[in-house]
């Protein structure tokens, strides 16, 4: 893949992300003209408290930043897991952290913990997500080696177990709790706070650094585990560190916004077609692309049926699936032609 093509991709993605961010700040039930945004942010930083400043400072800015971070975290994790599993269908849900997180969240709501403090549900989701990943990892590890096939299969088994427990809890829960649970399960960005942003910022940026340090190992692993071992990759170490990091990053994302599907699957896949398979580029591009996709989806989620707000998870899937299929189709036709 030529360097200029990759550079263009990064420039395009960054400009698109910037535009999406401005739109996200500007659009909403209360429109803020784009031209006013720079001065509003300036005055917000200097303690201004007009309507614009309040809307931006306590609603749209944290929402924008959380959406961008969650998108970046999910998509870059997707890129990493697709390499580890050598499977383009791998996405963050594959390691069980999403279904584990859902189970944890639903249980905290069921047992009334969510009413004691707003932190119990995200914490519960985070903790169970990690526990489930660990269980799956242990099940797939034999004689000090983790088999990708067992990981995949035990991931599917444990995930469907978690899902059925979630369904069971849902069916037994009183109506108001059930609503709360469903809302959480659908994944949404409403009511995001600055503290969520700070937590996510730590997890996602630390995750990205670790992913990038493993980028070259992932390159070799993506063409075969034995090839990787042949050139000196410590396979087991790379698996451990990337799976652990994925669990923490996705756990942080899931616990602040609920399960948002498709971003981690579709973004790295599309970008691989665009900029090639090298993970150094792919991870960064996926982070930008994931942020972009989630911002755009959130924009649609908030504006499509005003004043009703959709859950962003529904929008990512509704937008992502057809687009993904279209591109796959196009890729197939060009491959058969060339």
């Amino acid at each position: 893949m030529s360097t200029s093509r990759i550079r263009w991709a990064f420039v395009t993605l960054s400009i698109a992300l910037f535009i999406a961010a401005v739109l996200e700040l500007s659009f909403g039930p209360m429109m803020i003209p784009m031209a006013r945004i720079p001065s509003d942010i300036w005055s917000l930083l200097h303690g201004g408290s007009g309507t614009d400043e309040v809307v931006l400072g306590s609603i749209r800015l944290p929402r924008l930043l959380v959406a961008a971070l969650v998108g970046a975290g999910l998509a870059s994790t997707g890129a990493v897991l697709q390499a580890i599993f050598r499977n383009p269908m791998a996405d963050p849900a594959i390691i069980g952290v999403s279904s584990g997180g859902s189970l944890g969240a639903v249980l905290t709501i069921q047992f009334g913990l969510s009413q004691l403090s707003q932190w119990y549900t995200p914490l519960g989701a985070f903790a169970t997500g990690l526990i489930v990943v660990f269980v799956i990892y242990r099940l797939a590890t034999f004689r000090g080696r983790t088999s990708i096939y067992s990981l995949l299969l035990s991931g599917v088994a444990i995930s469907s177990f978690c899902s059925s427990v979630v369904t069971l809890v849902l069916s037994l829960a009183p109506l108001d709790m059930m609503q709360q649970m469903l809302f959480w399960l659908m994944g949404g960005l409403d009511g995001t706070t600055w503290s969520e942003f700070f937590i996510l910022a730590v997890f996602v940026s630390a995750g990205l650094i670790i992913y990038l340090l493993q980028a070259h190992a992932l390159d070799v692993i993506s063409i075969g585990e034995e090839q990787a071992e042949g050139v000196g990759v410590s396979l087991q170490y790379t698996k451990q560190i990337t799976l652990t990091t994925s669990a923490f990053v996705v756990g942080a994302c899931v616990s602040s916004t609920g399960v948002i599907g498709f971003v981690g699957l579709v973004v790295p896949h599309l970008l691989r077609l665009w900029i090639g398979p090298s993970h150094r580029n792919l991870i960064v591009a996926s982070a930008i692309g994931g942020a972009l996709l989630l911002l755009l989806s959130d924009l649609v989620a908030r504006m499509a049926l005003l004043p009703v707000e959709l859950n962003v998870g529904i929008v990512t899937s509704c937008l992502g699936a057809p687009f993904f299929l279209y591109l796959l189709r196009r890729q197939e036709t060009t491959m058969h032609r060339g």
Binding site: M1, Q227, G232
Partner: peptide
């Protein structure tokens, strides 16, 4: 150096990128 039997066929890396992987231990 160890070269396994199976070389995957659907690899999008270029020959040069692949040979560069041989320098993994020196990065």
């Amino acid at each position: 150096a160890y070269l396994p039997q199976h070389m995957p066929e659907d690899v999008a890396f270029t020959v040069e990128q692949y040979v560069e992987m041989g320098r993994y231990a020196y990065r």
